[in-house]
Write a protein that binds this DNA or RNA. Structure first.
Length: 214
DNA sequence: CGCCAGGGCCTCA
DNA sequence: TGAGGCCATGGC
């Protein structure tokens, strides 16, 4: 089954996911930092705190005290690190306004984001795809797990190699990349957890992992 | 109680 | 370039 067929199946079973939950580019970027290795539920609380203080704004974030910021994002874990990371990314976009940033070639945008301490592959690509609507496929541990089990990716494939595979196998559509990644997350939470629920899984029929276990 | 969540950095081979 | 330690709360 082609990757596009997998997408069609997931979409048919799970429906549209309406990602990314966020009202502005800045809020989406903030969420991308805060959700690093953290459940979205914990992030929502922090974003509400930031909004109350009018801090979903890079100008304000750039000036706020680091201790105050760390307290507001406490619920997301790693709060000291994440406070610093938010300050760094706010500082970056104060020096490089988003409106100008978005006019650069995609590869340059990606490189520049990766140059910010605290922004790795997944965070950079989430920002490009979900905040700036660029056709950049996001890989995460869910993607690696699901597509390793289905039989598309090797066990410990690198981020970039996994991304190349998706990029080369799919039409270059921002809308498709957006929905596909969101569906993968939903599917991984629903059926394809660390301890998978293969009995009730609608993908079991096409899954090598299921076949190897049964 | 343990496990894991919409990772990334640093260090050391 | 890859493995291991570290950061840390909250839901189950």
């Amino acid at each position: 089954m082609s990757l596009k067929k997998v997408y069609d199946k997931l979409f048919k079973e799970l429906g549209p996911q309406n990602w990314w939950p966020g009202d502005s580019e800045e809020e989406i970027i903030i969420g991308a930092i805060l959700t690093q290795n953290t459940s979205w539920n914990n992030v929502e609380k922090a974003i509400r705190n930031l909004k109350k203080e009018n801090l979903c704004d890079f100008g304000e974030l750039n000036n706020v005290e680091i201790q105050k910021l760390a307290k507001l994002v406490y619920s997301t874990g790693y709060y000291n690190q994440k406070a610093k990371r938010l300050k760094r990314i706010a500082s970056y976009f104060m020096k490089n306004p988003i409106i100008k940033f978005k006019s650069k070639p995609l590869a340059d945008m990606r490189q520049d984001l990766l140059g910010i301490n605290g922004v790795g592959n997944e965070t950079a690509d989430s920002i490009l795809l979900y905040a700036f609507h660029k056709p950049m496929f996001v890989i995460d541990n869910y993607t690696k797990r699901v597509f390793y089990r289905l039989g598309y990716l090797s066990k410990n494939i690198s981020y970039v190699k996994a991304q190349d595979y998706f990029t080369e196998s799919l039409p270059q559509s921002q809308e498709l990349f957006n929905e596909f990644h969101a569906l993968i997350v939903k599917f991984a939470k629903l059926n394809c957890q660390r301890k998978p629920n293969c009995q009730k899984c609608f993908m079991a029929k096409w899954c090598k992992y299921k076949q190897s276990r049964s």
